[in-house]
Protein backbone atom coordinates (compact mmCIF):
# COMPACT_ATOMS: atom_id res chain seq x y z
CA UNK A 1 0.00 0.00 0.00
CA UNK A 2 1.96 3.03 1.21
CA UNK A 3 5.20 1.21 0.70
CA UNK A 4 4.47 0.64 -2.95
CA UNK A 5 3.05 4.04 -3.81
CA UNK A 6 5.56 6.35 -2.17
CA UNK A 7 8.70 5.58 -4.18
CA UNK A 8 6.62 6.05 -7.32
CA UNK A 9 5.52 9.38 -5.99
CA UNK A 10 9.03 10.62 -5.31
CA UNK A 11 10.33 9.50 -8.68
CA UNK A 12 7.38 11.07 -10.46
CA UNK A 13 8.22 14.35 -8.81
CA UNK A 14 11.70 14.39 -10.28
CA UNK A 15 11.06 15.51 -13.84
CA UNK A 16 8.73 18.23 -12.65
CA UNK A 17 11.06 19.93 -10.25
CA UNK A 18 14.54 19.03 -11.38
CA UNK A 19 16.17 21.84 -9.43
CA UNK A 20 14.53 21.11 -6.12
CA UNK A 21 14.73 17.36 -6.32
CA UNK A 22 16.28 16.73 -2.87
CA UNK A 23 13.39 18.37 -1.04
CA UNK A 24 11.07 15.48 -1.87
CA UNK A 25 13.50 12.67 -1.15
CA UNK A 26 12.13 12.18 2.39
CA UNK A 27 8.86 10.95 0.90
CA UNK A 28 10.50 7.60 0.19
CA UNK A 29 11.19 6.92 3.86
CA UNK A 30 7.72 7.87 5.07
CA UNK A 31 6.40 4.28 4.94
CA UNK A 32 9.34 3.15 7.06
CA UNK A 33 8.77 5.76 9.74
CA UNK A 34 5.05 5.13 9.61
CA UNK A 35 5.71 1.46 10.19
CA UNK A 36 8.14 2.11 13.01
CA UNK A 37 5.74 4.59 14.52
CA UNK A 38 2.71 2.31 14.49
CA UNK A 39 4.38 -0.93 15.49
CA UNK A 40 7.26 0.18 17.68
CA UNK A 41 7.03 3.71 19.03
CA UNK A 42 3.29 3.71 19.69
CA UNK A 43 3.28 0.47 21.69
CA UNK A 44 6.32 1.67 23.61
CA UNK A 45 4.55 4.90 24.44
CA UNK A 46 1.47 2.98 25.56
CA UNK A 47 3.66 0.79 27.75
CA UNK A 48 5.49 3.73 29.28
CA UNK A 49 2.23 5.62 29.86
CA UNK A 50 0.34 2.61 31.14
CA UNK A 51 3.08 1.62 33.54
CA UNK A 52 2.83 5.01 35.24
CA UNK A 53 -0.94 4.87 35.77
CA UNK A 54 -2.73 3.19 38.65
CA UNK A 55 -6.00 1.31 37.95
CA UNK A 56 -7.85 4.38 39.15
CA UNK A 57 -6.06 6.52 36.60
CA UNK A 58 -3.68 8.55 38.73
CA UNK A 59 0.02 8.97 38.05
CA UNK A 60 2.38 6.92 40.26
CA UNK A 61 5.33 4.53 40.41
CA UNK A 62 3.23 1.99 42.30
CA UNK A 63 3.30 -0.47 39.39
CA UNK A 64 7.07 -0.78 39.62
CA UNK A 65 6.98 -1.81 43.24
CA UNK A 66 5.53 -5.14 42.10
CA UNK A 67 8.85 -6.00 40.46
CA UNK A 68 10.30 -6.33 43.94
CA UNK A 69 8.06 -9.26 44.82
CA UNK A 70 10.02 -12.49 45.30
CA UNK A 71 8.15 -14.53 42.68
CA UNK A 72 8.61 -11.76 40.14
CA UNK A 73 12.26 -11.57 41.03
CA UNK A 74 12.44 -15.29 40.37
CA UNK A 75 10.86 -14.81 36.94
CA UNK A 76 13.44 -12.15 36.14
CA UNK A 77 16.25 -14.39 37.31
CA UNK A 78 15.08 -17.43 35.36
CA UNK A 79 14.41 -15.34 32.24
CA UNK A 80 17.93 -13.98 32.46
CA UNK A 81 19.37 -17.41 33.24
CA UNK A 82 17.66 -19.13 30.31
CA UNK A 83 18.61 -16.30 27.96
CA UNK A 84 22.20 -16.19 29.18
CA UNK A 85 22.79 -19.94 29.05
CA UNK A 86 21.17 -20.34 25.65
CA UNK A 87 23.10 -17.28 24.41
CA UNK A 88 26.50 -18.48 25.68
CA UNK A 89 26.08 -22.10 24.60
CA UNK A 90 24.53 -20.98 21.31
CA UNK A 91 27.36 -18.52 20.75
CA UNK A 92 30.10 -21.10 21.28
CA UNK A 93 28.50 -23.85 19.23
CA UNK A 94 27.37 -21.40 16.54
CA UNK A 95 30.82 -19.81 16.36
CA UNK A 96 32.48 -23.20 15.90
CA UNK A 97 30.00 -24.12 13.21
CA UNK A 98 30.48 -20.76 11.48
CA UNK A 99 34.27 -21.27 11.67
CA UNK A 100 34.02 -24.69 10.06
CA UNK A 101 31.84 -23.27 7.31
CA UNK A 102 33.90 -20.13 6.67
CA UNK A 103 37.24 -21.91 6.52
CA UNK A 104 35.86 -24.35 3.96
CA UNK A 105 35.51 -23.58 0.27
CA UNK A 106 34.04 -20.07 -0.22
CA UNK A 107 31.19 -21.25 -2.40
CA UNK A 108 31.27 -24.93 -1.60
CA UNK A 109 28.14 -26.94 -1.03
CA UNK A 110 28.75 -27.08 2.75
CA UNK A 111 28.77 -23.34 3.10
CA UNK A 112 25.70 -22.76 0.98
CA UNK A 113 23.71 -25.48 2.73
CA UNK A 114 24.61 -24.42 6.25
CA UNK A 115 24.07 -20.72 5.61
CA UNK A 116 20.67 -21.09 4.02
CA UNK A 117 19.71 -23.72 6.61
CA UNK A 118 20.71 -21.32 9.36
CA UNK A 119 18.66 -18.60 7.71
CA UNK A 120 15.57 -20.75 7.96
CA UNK A 121 16.20 -22.25 11.41
CA UNK A 122 17.03 -18.91 13.03
CA UNK A 123 13.44 -17.91 12.30
CA UNK A 124 12.05 -21.20 13.51
CA UNK A 125 10.15 -20.85 16.74
CA UNK A 126 6.76 -20.72 18.39
CA UNK A 127 4.20 -23.48 18.23
CA UNK A 128 5.86 -25.38 15.37
CA UNK A 129 9.20 -25.64 17.13
CA UNK A 130 7.63 -26.54 20.45
CA UNK A 131 5.50 -29.19 18.82
CA UNK A 132 8.57 -30.63 17.12
CA UNK A 133 10.29 -30.98 20.49
CA UNK A 134 7.26 -32.43 22.25
CA UNK A 135 6.80 -34.93 19.42
CA UNK A 136 10.41 -36.07 19.69
CA UNK A 137 11.53 -35.53 23.26
CA UNK A 138 8.17 -35.36 25.05
CA UNK A 139 7.13 -38.16 27.39
CA UNK A 140 5.51 -39.93 24.47
CA UNK A 141 7.92 -38.50 21.86
CA UNK A 142 9.50 -41.08 19.59
CA UNK A 143 13.11 -40.22 20.38
CA UNK A 144 12.40 -40.52 24.11
CA UNK A 145 10.54 -43.79 23.62
CA UNK A 146 13.27 -45.11 21.35
CA UNK A 147 15.97 -44.28 23.90
CA UNK A 148 13.85 -45.77 26.70
CA UNK A 149 13.54 -49.03 24.78
CA UNK A 150 17.33 -49.12 24.62
CA UNK A 151 17.69 -48.62 28.34
CA UNK A 152 18.35 -44.89 28.37
CA UNK A 153 15.86 -42.86 30.35
CA UNK A 154 16.60 -39.18 29.83
CA UNK A 155 13.88 -38.33 32.31
CA UNK A 156 15.10 -40.69 35.04
CA UNK A 157 15.31 -37.78 37.45
CA UNK A 158 12.15 -36.10 36.33
CA UNK A 159 10.81 -34.59 33.14
CA UNK A 160 12.94 -31.49 32.49
CA UNK A 161 11.55 -30.67 29.06
CA UNK A 162 8.90 -28.35 30.50
CA UNK A 163 11.43 -26.77 32.80
CA UNK A 164 14.12 -24.15 32.42
CA UNK A 165 16.43 -26.83 31.03
CA UNK A 166 13.93 -27.82 28.37
CA UNK A 167 13.27 -24.24 27.39
CA UNK A 168 17.00 -23.59 27.12
CA UNK A 169 17.40 -26.64 24.89
CA UNK A 170 14.56 -25.53 22.64
CA UNK A 171 15.95 -22.00 22.45
CA UNK A 172 19.31 -23.39 21.32
CA UNK A 173 17.51 -24.65 18.26
CA UNK A 174 17.25 -21.12 16.92
CA UNK A 175 20.12 -19.53 18.86
CA UNK A 176 22.83 -21.63 17.19
CA UNK A 177 21.68 -20.84 13.62
CA UNK A 178 21.33 -17.18 14.52
CA UNK A 179 24.92 -17.17 15.78
CA UNK A 180 26.10 -18.76 12.54
CA UNK A 181 24.37 -15.99 10.60
CA UNK A 182 25.59 -13.03 12.62
CA UNK A 183 29.12 -14.27 13.36
CA UNK A 184 30.10 -15.56 9.89
CA UNK A 185 30.70 -12.05 8.49
CA UNK A 186 33.25 -11.35 11.25
CA UNK A 187 35.06 -14.60 10.48
CA UNK A 188 35.00 -13.71 6.80
CA UNK A 189 36.84 -10.50 7.67
CA UNK A 190 39.84 -12.43 9.01
CA UNK A 191 42.52 -12.36 6.32
CA UNK A 192 44.67 -15.41 5.67
CA UNK A 193 47.75 -13.15 5.45
CA UNK A 194 47.43 -12.40 9.16
CA UNK A 195 47.99 -16.06 9.90
CA UNK A 196 50.90 -16.22 7.48
CA UNK A 197 52.40 -13.01 8.81
CA UNK A 198 52.24 -14.49 12.33
CA UNK A 199 53.96 -17.62 11.04
CA UNK A 200 56.73 -15.71 9.32
CA UNK A 201 57.29 -13.66 12.47
CA UNK A 202 57.91 -16.89 14.37
CA UNK A 203 54.49 -17.42 15.96
CA UNK A 204 52.44 -20.61 16.08
CA UNK A 205 48.77 -21.43 16.26
CA UNK A 206 48.53 -20.44 19.91
CA UNK A 207 50.15 -17.04 19.33
CA UNK A 208 47.88 -16.43 16.37
CA UNK A 209 44.73 -17.05 18.37
CA UNK A 210 45.98 -15.38 21.52
CA UNK A 211 47.28 -12.17 19.96
CA UNK A 212 45.67 -11.82 16.56
CA UNK A 213 42.47 -13.71 15.77
CA UNK A 214 41.25 -13.79 19.37
CA UNK A 215 41.44 -10.04 20.06
CA UNK A 216 40.09 -9.31 16.59
CA UNK A 217 37.09 -11.59 16.94
CA UNK A 218 36.33 -11.19 20.63
CA UNK A 219 34.36 -7.93 20.51
CA UNK A 220 32.26 -9.29 17.69
CA UNK A 221 31.77 -12.59 19.52
CA UNK A 222 30.68 -10.76 22.63
CA UNK A 223 28.36 -8.55 20.63
CA UNK A 224 26.76 -11.54 18.92
CA UNK A 225 26.32 -13.24 22.29
CA UNK A 226 24.48 -10.15 23.52
CA UNK A 227 22.30 -10.24 20.43
CA UNK A 228 21.46 -13.87 21.18
CA UNK A 229 20.68 -12.92 24.76
CA UNK A 230 18.24 -10.24 23.62
CA UNK A 231 16.76 -12.68 21.13
CA UNK A 232 16.03 -15.27 23.83
CA UNK A 233 15.05 -12.70 26.43
CA UNK A 234 12.28 -11.30 24.28
CA UNK A 235 11.13 -14.65 22.86
CA UNK A 236 7.57 -15.38 23.86
CA UNK A 237 5.68 -17.71 21.54
CA UNK A 238 7.90 -20.76 22.03
CA UNK A 239 7.70 -20.66 25.81
CA UNK A 240 4.02 -19.87 25.73
CA UNK A 241 3.32 -22.94 23.65
CA UNK A 242 5.48 -25.18 25.80
CA UNK A 243 4.53 -24.04 29.27
CA UNK A 244 0.82 -24.13 29.89
CA UNK A 245 0.77 -23.14 33.51
CA UNK A 246 2.84 -20.00 32.82
CA UNK A 247 5.05 -18.11 35.15
CA UNK A 248 8.55 -19.40 34.57
CA UNK A 249 9.81 -16.50 32.50
CA UNK A 250 8.97 -12.80 32.25
CA UNK A 251 6.99 -12.69 29.00
CA UNK A 252 4.73 -15.39 30.43
CA UNK A 253 4.29 -13.43 33.65
CA UNK A 254 3.22 -10.46 31.58
CA UNK A 255 0.81 -12.63 29.62
CA UNK A 256 -0.55 -13.98 32.89
CA UNK A 257 -1.08 -10.50 34.32
CA UNK A 258 -2.87 -9.37 31.19
CA UNK A 259 -5.19 -12.33 30.72
CA UNK A 260 -5.72 -13.63 34.20
CA UNK A 261 -8.85 -15.78 34.41
CA UNK A 262 -9.37 -15.06 38.08
CA UNK A 263 -10.34 -11.54 37.15
CA UNK A 264 -7.28 -10.09 38.78
CA UNK A 265 -5.69 -8.77 35.61
CA UNK A 266 -3.30 -5.92 36.30
CA UNK A 267 -2.50 -4.09 33.05
CA UNK A 268 -0.46 -1.36 34.73
CA UNK A 269 1.72 -3.90 36.49
CA UNK A 270 2.16 -5.84 33.24
CA UNK A 271 3.27 -2.69 31.48
CA UNK A 272 5.78 -1.93 34.20
CA UNK A 273 7.29 -5.38 33.66
CA UNK A 274 7.28 -4.87 29.91
CA UNK A 275 9.07 -1.56 30.36
CA UNK A 276 11.70 -3.25 32.49
CA UNK A 277 12.21 -5.79 29.70
CA UNK A 278 12.46 -3.05 27.09
CA UNK A 279 15.11 -1.30 29.16
CA UNK A 280 17.14 -4.49 29.48
CA UNK A 281 16.92 -5.22 25.76
CA UNK A 282 17.82 -1.61 24.95
CA UNK A 283 20.90 -1.75 27.15
CA UNK A 284 21.97 -5.06 25.63
CA UNK A 285 21.42 -3.87 22.07
CA UNK A 286 23.30 -0.65 22.71
CA UNK A 287 26.27 -2.66 23.95
CA UNK A 288 25.97 -4.87 20.88
CA UNK A 289 26.04 -1.86 18.56
CA UNK A 290 29.04 -0.36 20.34
CA UNK A 291 30.97 -3.62 20.10
CA UNK A 292 30.11 -4.08 16.44
CA UNK A 293 31.20 -0.56 15.65
CA UNK A 294 34.50 -1.11 17.40
CA UNK A 295 35.50 -3.97 15.10
CA UNK A 296 33.85 -2.66 11.94
CA UNK A 297 37.02 -1.20 10.48
CA UNK A 298 39.16 -4.15 11.57
CA UNK A 299 37.26 -6.89 9.82
CA UNK A 300 36.32 -5.24 6.58
Amino acid sequence: MTAASSPALSSAARPLEGGRRPTLSWVGVVPFFLYVGVFLLLPTAIIVGGSLLTPSGSLSFANFEGINKPYMFKAFASSIAISAVSAVVGAFVGALLAYAVVTGKPDGILRRTVMSGAGVLAQFGGVTLTFAFIATLGTVGFVYVFLLQHGIDIYARGVWLYDQAGLTLIYLYFQIPLMVLVFAPALDGIRPQWREATDSLGGGTWHYWRYIAGPLLFPSFLGCTLLLFANAFSAYATASALLTQGGVILPLQIQFLLTSETGSSQPGYAKALALAMIVIVLVVMTLYTLLQRRTAHWLR
Binding site: R191, Q193, E196, A197, S200, L216
Partner: peptide, 13 residues
Protein backbone atom coordinates in the same frame (compact mmCIF):
# COMPACT_ATOMS: atom_id res chain seq x y z
CA UNK B 1 62.24 -15.22 7.09
CA UNK B 2 60.77 -11.75 6.75
CA UNK B 3 57.75 -11.43 4.48
CA UNK B 4 55.91 -8.55 2.89
CA UNK B 5 52.63 -9.52 1.26
CA UNK B 6 50.84 -8.13 -1.75
CA UNK B 7 47.63 -7.39 0.10
CA UNK B 8 47.83 -5.18 3.16
CA UNK B 9 48.57 -7.50 6.04
CA UNK B 10 49.14 -5.29 9.08
CA UNK B 11 47.33 -6.45 12.19
CA UNK B 12 44.48 -3.92 12.29
CA UNK B 13 44.08 -3.82 16.06
Amino acid sequence: IGMVFQAYSLFPH
